[in-house]
């Protein structure tokens, strides 16, 4: 992809220097710190990282749904060209569920337990389209069939607790598709499901994306899922992006020591009988994040500037960026 074409591609989500903070131990801490992302129409960007690294907060910031007392401090977020942070409340409501939809990790708790599944999808439709109840219900039935819910008509009247976990997640997806959004944010959509169901849901997402041309921002800690679904990958660590680029580059030739460690710790990568490598230490809580590079206290190749100066983006290629002093030094040395 040439630079010109990259610039010309249409962005459905554009996040620039987003910082979101929460009060932790009496002080406001940025759990998302100057994060930039973009998702082009029809593509899938996987946002990968361990739990607590800020990937869900990034997504919620984009939806302007950060729970209180969290606060988006700075940055710009554009969804389909609309500036999310300055949009009036009523306009923002029209964006949610219409331009962008979101599905969550726990389909059990994410559905309203005292409303039928059908009623919840119907509400989603009627919030954005002036249609009769009967028409919305017909559309909801069609959506249920589309997401592969057998006996769709009857399931409209089922309560969430009467369905299995996989079926519930399909209901969530049907609800998300109600207005044919151009972007779907999927926050750990398969984590709470059995392995076989996981595969079905991933397959469903893939086919829906193909049929509807919808972009997906996939939030996951599971590199296996990234491999199956993503076009591009952004790796997050402790509130910051560590590495970002096309899937083949980031997973095939990772440059950031954190990405490398993450991939080495996967069972599939090691030869049989070989010990799995692990990154020494644990992800520290936000109050103990190091001041320079966030990874510096666990990094095997950290050197002098790492614990004092935050790394900036180093372009490995036109589309592949890494936030690492060591990579910058190595590239600088080879291309003076």
């Amino acid at each position: 992809m040439s630079e010109a074409r990259a610039r010309a591609r249409e962005l459905v989500l554009e996040v620039r220097d987003l910082s979101t903070s929460f009060p932790i131990d009496g002080a406001r801490r940025r759990v998302v710190d100057r994060v930039s992302l973009e998702v082009a129409a029809g593509e899938t960007l996987a946002l990968v990282g361990e739990s607590g690294c800020g990937k869900s907060v990034t997504a919620l910031s984009a939806m302007r749904l950060v729970p209180k007392p969290g606060l988006v401090e700075s940055g710009t977020i554009r969804i389909g060209g609309k500036d999310v942070r300055t949009l009036p409340v009523t306009e923002m409501r029209r964006v949610r569920g219409n331009d962008v939809s979101m599905i969550f990790q726990e389909p059990m708790t994410s559905l309203n337990p005292v409303q039928t599944c059908g009623a919840q999808v119907v509400e989603g439709i009627r919030l954005h389209h002036r249609v009769s109840n009967a028409e919305a219900r017909r559309q909801a039935g069609a959506l249920f069939s589309q997401v592969g819910i057998p006996d769709a008509e009857a399931r409209l009247d089922a309560y969430p607790h009467q369905l299995s976990g996989g079926m519930r997640q399909r209901v969530m997806i049907a609800m998300a598709l109600a207005s044919r959004p151009r972007l779907l944010i999927a926050d750990e959509p398969t984590t709470a499901l059995d392995v076989t169901i996981q595969a079905q849901i991933l397959e469903l997402l893939r086919s829906l994306q193909r049929d509807l041309g919808m972009a997906i921002l996939l939030i996951t800690h599971d590199v296996g899922i990234v491999n199956e679904l993503a076009d591009r990958v952004a790796v997050m660590y402790a509130g910051r992006i560590a590495e970002e680029g096309p899937r083949r580059d980031v997973l095939g030739a990772p440059r950031h020591p954190y990405t490398q460690g993450l991939l080495r710790s996967l069972p599939g990568r090691a030869a049989p009988g070989e010990r799995l490598e692990e990154i020494p230490g644990v992800v520290p809580p936000p109050s103990q994040w190091p001041s320079g590079c966030r990874f510096s206290n666990r990094c095997p190749i950290a050197f002098e500037p790492c614990d004092s100066i935050e790394p900036e983006r180093t372009a490995v290629s036109a589309v592949h960026g890494v936030w690492c002093h060591a990579v910058a030094r190595d590239l600088g040395a080879s291309e003076p």
């Binding site: 939806m63 409340v89 949610r96 969550f104 726990e106 954005h128």
Partner: peptide, 22 residues
């Protein structure tokens, strides 16, 4: 604080609708 409230907001429900209907 429950998850379904977040879902309702993500659908595009306003504050009043979230409180009264969900």
């Amino acid at each position: 604080a429950r998850d379904y409230v977040r879902t309702a907001r993500a659908k595009g429900c306003g504050d009043a609708r979230v409180m009264w209907r969900h």
